[in-house]
């Protein structure tokens, strides 16, 4: 194994670092979108609107059953098809490529959201009745009760599950290379093809993913210890 291949400047270090940034940005944007979708989904699923709740349930089942790759293709090609149809009357012809990064964010975020929704539902169910009754007794309106009492308590129950999903989503990001995104794994693959040192570059990429996952688990452990203080556990 020749480690000088990974050097910055003369080696592939700069390209790999750019790939890593793409991976991190994709994971972060997907997690933000997915967590928001999941929170919204959980609120609808636990609301009294039966039809809407059922739709959310169906969305969750479908998203958790389909391969991420299929969702990525559907979003990427689906959107470019729609754009093509929209632009056709204006004389734009042929394939309209949309940005692989944002298609990836949308696709992975949608899947992430389906899993998050489940975590949030469990967390809302775990909030004890006492604080909510106290809030009602104090005359707090529903919205302030939710924002200042229910949501902070639920977040503590949801955090371990949410952090776990961050790792799952980070691991799903290399799939977006299938629609042309130059993420860390894709760059490592290109470097391997160019230099014929596949093993070196894939091991380097593996090490980076493992370090990122370990970092997330470390943060998770810290947050959990802090949160459990407040839960009195």
């Amino acid at each position: 194994m020749d480690l000088s291949l990974l050097a910055f400047g003369s080696g592939w270090g700069d390209a790999l670092a750019r790939g890593l940034l793409v991976t991190l940005a994709l994971a972060a944007a997907s997690v933000v979108l997915g967590t928001a979708l999941g929170l919204g989904g959980a609120l609808v699923a636990t609301s009294r609107r039966r039809t809407a709740a059922r739709l959310v349930g169906g969305y969750e089942v479908v998203m958790r059953s389909l391969p991420e790759l299929l969702v990525i293709f559907a979003v990427y090609y689906g959107f470019s098809f729609a754009l093509q149809a929209l632009l056709a009357p204006f004389g734009v012809d042929g394939f309209v490529a949309i940005d692989a990064f944002w298609a990836g964010v949308l696709a992975i975020g949608m899947v992430h959201g389906a899993y998050c929704s489940e975590v949030f539902r469990g967390a809302f169910a775990a909030v004890p009745a006492g604080p909510l009754e106290a809030a009602a007794a104090l005359g707090l309106r529903p919205l302030p009760t939710f924002v200042t009492v229910k949501l902070p308590l639920a977040l503590r129950f949801a955090l371990p599950g949410l952090m776990n999903l961050v790792v799952v989503t980070l691991k799903a990001t290399p799939l977006v290379a299938a629609v042309g995104l130059e993420d860390l794994l894709r760059v490592a693959g290109d470097a391997g093809k160019n230099t014929k040192h596949y093993l070196t570059f894939y091991l380097a990429a593996l090490a980076v993913y493992l370090v990122l996952a370990a970092a997330i688990w470390l943060v998770e452990g810290r947050i959990e210890r802090r949160a459990s203080k407040f839960l009195g556990a």
Partner: peptide, 19 residues
């Protein structure tokens, strides 16, 4: 739990033959 499936797949397919 930490390694993406695609990385594992590429390591076995492209990497192992270079061991």
């Amino acid at each position: 739990r930490g390694a993406p499936l695609l990385v594992v797949l590429f390591l076995v397919y492209y990497g192992l033959p270079q061991v």
